[in-house]
Design a protein around this nucleic acid. Structure first.
Length: 514
RNA sequence: GCCCCGUUCGUCUAGAGGUUAGGACCCAAGAUUUUCAUUCUUGUAACAGGGGUUCGAUUCCCCUACGGGGUACCA
């Protein structure tokens, strides 16, 4: 029988989740769903010094917004609870003790200060210190001290850590689902701290123990973990779990647009685009960072974009729903090299989704934005406005800036264009259009256009001369959607008002010319 | 320093020995449009370098360069 697919996304709540993390979560989710497996969210909060208020909540909200909710998590529950590592503290101690008993790990009493001194000394000799099978004999631990001394120290309540005892000089070889065979010599691996002096496990211990206990079948994580994977394998072996070891897949990193370093939380919005899915307020400084949601990205577009950063289906299709992605996602199509993040493509995705997303999904977003502007409009009018503008905006909120004239009469006009087009016929024509339009019974595009064309024919005026003026009258701008459609949208009364107002302004400013 | 991973148009990438090296974004030009946008057409633009292996290498191997990651009682 094949092992059930169970994957986990295991962020630590030391700050807001950033888009690299979201992509890791996404790939885990896609992989799980494809195999009808489970997607687990585990909170790795073992570093009590770096705890950030609200960061955990931010993770839940972000995943929810993206539509990739976990099957099991601290919030959703599950049969392997608890899913928050701080609540599993006793478990790790038990497993660490087990390794002590079996001789696979040992106590170490070196204080952080002592180790720091050793490190400095080594550095002075231009060497890098690592705590490993070659150096541990010179340090203070249960391998160098007598059993009695160790016992005394423990009983005296001295601080200690538990370190993994790496043994042997052979290579650790494993097969990464994305990278193929990876090989590293055991001499390169240090005797990593498993249990910290505060009784909390380090990432390595907690991770391996939990992945084992939670029956994780595939570990899909960022490339920054690739170098410590051999260590994790040593841990599985130390526990005797080598047959239950999950498969590993290490994802390429999302890099800064410059390519210099991985995209990090700290980049904030200095780069000109959000690095967080949602906006985030730093509880310490009060500083607010932009989020994709608040910037106006549709979650479907955001996810689609993110999915294609580092993975592709091998076909030329680029637009995929989350569900489609779950059908075609494969780890072997994940690219190996890091991807320089380029927001331009992300904006393009949003434009695509803006045009194809059904009205009922767009409406709530538009209404929320409308209320911010304290404008009032019926739902169907709002959607009509959106349809008029949707092919010339990248984000739904731009309806209210680029399409402001659909909601309020223009306060200014584009004088540069007006001056070029204005002639001695202009006022007469505008007045005529106004008057003839005023008596139209069927206020629709076809009729308006016909009446308009009859007039310019009658007066032998060029369409390119009068149209910009009429457009300015109605919108205050010289470019935009079809003018007759705008007129229909605004309604006869409003159109009449705007034209009259514009004529008045012209008369006032250009009396000499007319 | 040491270890690991990587390197195809500016960017995201396809390519798994023989291709006019393909697509998308961006940019540019043209067509359509009252205008802008959309749409359509076209264009610019890439195999890091050097050695092998081979009849033939972007593709396989090695070296170099460059980039990224790791090297904590952080994850």
């Amino acid at each position: 029988m094949k092992k059930r697919v169970r994957v986990r996304f295991a962020p630590s709540p030391t700050g807001p989740l950033h888009i690299g993390g979201v992509r890791t979560a996404l790939y885990n989710y896609l992989f799980a769903k494809q195999y009808d497996g489970d997607f687990i969210l585990r909170i790795e909060d073992t570093d009590q010094t770096r705890f950030v208020e609200g960061a955990e909540q931010f993770i839940y909200e972000s995943l929810k917004w993206c539509g990739i909710e976990p099957d099991e998590s601290p919030l959703h529950g599950g049969s392997y609870a608890p899913y928050r590592q701080s609540e599993r503290k006793p478990i790790y101690k038990e497993y660490a003790d087990q390794l002590i008993r079996t001789g696979k790990a040992y106590y170490a009493f070196d204080t952080p200060e002592e180790l720091e001194t050793v490190r400095k000394n080594w550095e002075a000799q231009r060497k890098m210190f690592i705590y490993n099978q070659e150096t541990r004999s010179m340090l203070k631990n249960s391998l160098t001290l007598t059993p009695d001394e160790v016992k005394k120290k423990l009983q005296a309540g001295l601080d200690y850590v538990i370190r993994l005892k790496i043994e042997g000089k052979d290579d650790i070889v494993f097969h990464d689902l994305i990278r193929g065979e990876v090989r590293i010599n055991k001499l390169q691996i240090d005797d990593k701290v498993l249990l910290k002096s505060d009784g909390m496990p380090t990432y390595h211990l907690a991770n391996v123990v939990d992945d084992y206990l939670m029956r994780i079948s595939h570990v899909i994580r960022g490339e920054e973990w690739l170098p410590s994977t051999p260590l994790h394998i040593c841990l599985y072996e130390a526990f005797g779990w080598e047959n239950e070891m999950p498969a590993f897949a290490h994802l390429p990193l999302l890099l800064k647009p410059s390519g210099k370093g991985k995209l990090s939380k700290r980049d904030g919005d200095q780069l000109g685009f959000p690095v967080f899915p949602l906006s985030w307020k730093d509880p310490q400084t009060g500083e607010i960072s932009r989020g994709y949601r608040e910037d106006g990205f549709l979650p479907e577009a955001f996810i689609n974009f993110l999915a294609l950063q580092g993975w592709n289906p091998g076909t030329e299709q680029e637009i995929f729903s989350l569900e489609e992605l779950t059908k075609i996602f494969t780890l072997d199509k994940v690219h190996k090299a890091g991807a320089k993040f380029d927001i331009k493509k992300g904006i393009w995705f949003n434009e695509q989704y803006l045009r194809k997303t059904p009205h009922e999904k767009i409406l709530p977003l538009l209404k929320a934005e409308l209320s911010l502007n304290s404008w009032n409009l019926e739902d169907n009018k709002l959607l009509q406005a959106f349809d008029l503008m949707k092919e010339r905006i990248s984000f739904h909120k731009e309806l209210f800036t680029k399409g402001k004239f659909l909601f309020v009469a223009p306060e200014n006009y584009d004088w540069t264009t007006i001056k070029k087009k204005l002639n001695d016929k202009s006022i007469t024509l505008l007045t005529k259009i106004h008057d003839n339009w005023s008596v139209i019974e069927k206020w629709e595009v076809f009729t308006l256009e016909n009446v308009f064309k009859e007039i310019i024919e009658q007066y032998n005026e060029k369409i390119g001369n009068i149209m910009p003026l009429l457009r300015n009258a109605l919108t205050g701008e010289s470019v935009g959607p079809n003018l007759f459609e705008i007129s229909v949208f605004l309604g006869k009364l409003e159109v009449s008002k705007r034209i009259i107002s514009f004529i008045e302004t012209l008369k006032h400013n250009f009396a000499y010319k007319i």
